[in-house]
Design a protein around this nucleic acid. Structure first.
Lengths: 188, 188, 188, 188
DNA sequence: GATGAATGAGTATTCATTCAT
DNA sequence: AATGAATGAATACTCATTCAT
């Protein structure tokens, strides 16, 4: 097993990809990413067989990270609303503190290269958040709507809020509060 | 590189671009678009100096079209809620009936090639809808939030709803209704 | 039809390919060929869609040329033996005077890239020579063998003879004479 | 880069190379060969310093094997013609029973990578067969031709015959017989 | 104005070979 | 000695854009 594959190098490539994609979009070249990661051109392909595989790995990793950030403080046994607020805060905080990661994730979501399997994996990572959301939905005005649709509305609301916070950080607190209030009115 | 004569050809190129981008994504080549439009390779550049200019023109045109579809029946003097519902119906109907155009618009929104000027023009086309939205917002629970943010929340809600209708047309009526109800709870 | 495809350029590419393949073998790169032809890298692909297409075109062209060189003086109404001798002389002369072309043809014959259709076309070009050979075979000791097999034996004899002439030109006349004599003993 | 220990591994690599080259041609990669041999990528280079050295070793080995197969039964003290027939049978049998080995040898013969030294070694392996051929030539119609040229004609005849047997095995016996008869007419 | 040939920089991936483990 | 990760040069083909006809 001489000279095992280096997890550090693998991570370096993923991090480099985030930086390069954030700067250049999904048309970023593998050469640029390898250079940014400090590895040789061809080494990238020891860690990811194709560019598409790198894209998919990145997608799942970022989506999982995002999901985790909103699920972190979720063990509370307070009210559903309190729990949802905490999730909201975690999500928004992650996006605002890691704008590159969030931007890349947004780009990848729209890419044709992301496979159904990767999307399923990303979906899976969001399960805890979806369960919490269920508690909120089931007794509120959206009790007739499907859980998936309600989740999509939450995501849409969160992303729109995050966009405003990033574009206009001076009013971050307001957007954060108003966005959550709007979400809660939707489903609570 | 004199001024183009034929508006027909210009339109043919734009329509062809919609078809090709819908099928291949933003990596569609100018050659493929020219071929689909039935014009020569180089002729495309008589009408659009660069690929980016074609992208921007398309963005503004589609955004304007979308805005128009929701503003069409807006002259009603009924209640704000009724007017908003009509706008909602127009918007959703356009997206569902022209899924290629809507898909291309979604792709272009995320593209780095779209300039600030184009985004401003697109924004301008949405003015009538935003005015209507203002009537709704000003007296409701979001009266403290900025109009732009509320508009973004409406857009996010509409787009999420449209996604579900397109993916699951059997339940289109439910999503349409529930989506609007959620929107109205947000701001009404 | 502005600026029609130039036959000169096409031929320049084919000639360049001959030179480069003769020097470097079938691993010659399209870039090297384009450079030798004095055209841009990408222009090669205006004339030949793929490298394989260039290879096939070259194969058919060289094979046809070789066949023509042996069929040239074939209209004689002398004996079959005389006619065959003339064909032999034409063939050997072509190969010896155009050693690069002959070498490239030899390389291409063994290539996996040459399609069945190209081989058929090459075969077709040899038809006149095969007809002449038939006259010789039908009444000689090989009258029971298939025409194709006899043709292959002739080709094998000719190519072996040519190899020796090229390697040892001082004794060219001897190889030429002895080779033909051997061939005639085989089938006459 | 010390001396290799295991002759087994060396042979495994050579055998694997035959299989892979037969399937993929001379563009077969060292990685593919190593994998087929069940050794690591880099280990191949312990046994063969370069790819070219592997090619050359293979060439000499296969040529020697082929020569041996035709020389096997050569101790007969029958007539020259009988001895030549036996050699012919041995040669053809080897080629027909080991089509991969023969194909690879044919490919290697045309390769630029094979050095003059290797060709000389291959030539040396054919010495017994050439000696036998001498006995046939010296008293026949080719007594004026050089031994080397006559040997080349024999090789050409044999290879053409083998091609037909492999392509059309149903008539193998006919080709075998007619091919030898033609050869014998040439020189006997 | 229209055409499509010409251009050459750019891209993902492969591969022989080296070298750290 | 064996392994397989690391390297970076090499390659066929694409594409936005220009320009001769």
């Amino acid at each position: 097993v001489a000279r095992p594959r280096s997890n550090d190098k693998r991570q370096a490539i993923l991090e480099a990809a985030i930086g390069v994609i954030a700067a250049q979009g999904l048309s970023a070249s593998t050469a640029a990413i390898a250079k940014a990661a400090g590895v040789a051109n061809g080494s990238l392909f020891t860690y990811f067989e194709t560019k598409a595989e790198l894209w998919n790995t990145l997608y799942v990793e970022l989506k999982t990270e995002m999901a985790a950030s909103s699920a972190e403080a979720l063990t509370t046994d307070g009210s559903a609303k309190d729990a949802l607020l905490q999730a909201w805060e975690g999500w928004v905080t992650w996006a605002v503190e890691m704008p590159e990661r969030r931007k890349v994730l947004q780009l990848l979501v729209t890419s044709d290269e992301i496979t159904a399997a990767s999307r399923r994996a990303g979906h899976g990572a969001m399960a805890p958040l979806r369960q919490l959301l269920e508690r909120c939905r089931a007794q509120g005005p959206m009790r007739e709507a499907t859980p998936g649709f309600v989740a999509a509305l939450m995501t849409a609301t969160a992303e729109a809020t995050i966009d405003f916070i990033i574009d206009d950080p001076a009013n971050a607190a307001g957007y954060r509060r108003d966005g959550f209030a709007a979400l809660w009115r939707m489903l609570g």
